[in-house]
Amino acid sequence: MSSAVASPRDNRAPGFWGSTNGKKAVMAVTGCILFLFIIGHLLGNLQIFESAARLNAYGRLLHNLGELLWIIRGVLLLCVVLHIWATFQLWSRNREARPVGYKVKKSVASSYADRTMYWSGPIVLAFVIFHLLEFTAGTIHPESRFIPGDVYHNVVAGFSVWWVSAWYIFSLILLGMHLRHGLWSMFQSLGLNHPRHTPVLKQAALWIAILITAGYISIPVSVLAGWVR
């Protein structure tokens, strides 16, 4: 029988970033900021249904923000980096936490969206990179010419390619699933949970995720259907 069962030692406490709880709080805050961007971006995009002039004017407005635009882009980029960095570190820690897996393992309480966050996240990231290259930089613009400043033309020409639209719709559904978990999970990570309010929050997260996904998808669907041309 060994006597050295436990020996106390002074350690630096895992700091805010070092602890799993702190990292989740960072993920919650950055996720929330990215969620606000998703709302703003959707409201901007939906102007395509008003007129081409309106959408192009909105695009010009954004570009005329100058330094402010770069500050916003910087904050968003920082959020993306922190969100992914924290996830990656937690993911590798969680893999080590169970070196030997189960022969049989069933899920009893979690939803499909809950369990696929590790998949929906990276796929949405790949989509965002593609999306930026297509509609912001214009380096990938299959089957048509990218015209800087003519947002309406770029969107319609881009989404007329069926696989661009399909990839967009697929990614946005995954984004919706990511939000369905993330929108209520961020409250939990920041320490807010209440037996009366959390079920309402979960329902709200589901409907907000559905609305956002439907809003975004309406654009490629309208282009493919010929309602927007």
Binding site: A109, S110, S111
Partner: peptide
Amino acid sequence: GSCTNIGECTGVCPKEIPLEVIARMNR
């Protein structure tokens, strides 16, 4: 490992401890 707020723990807990306690810990 870290908590991902999915609730598998509560689902199997013989004492039905709610996820609320995890939020409490975070707070």
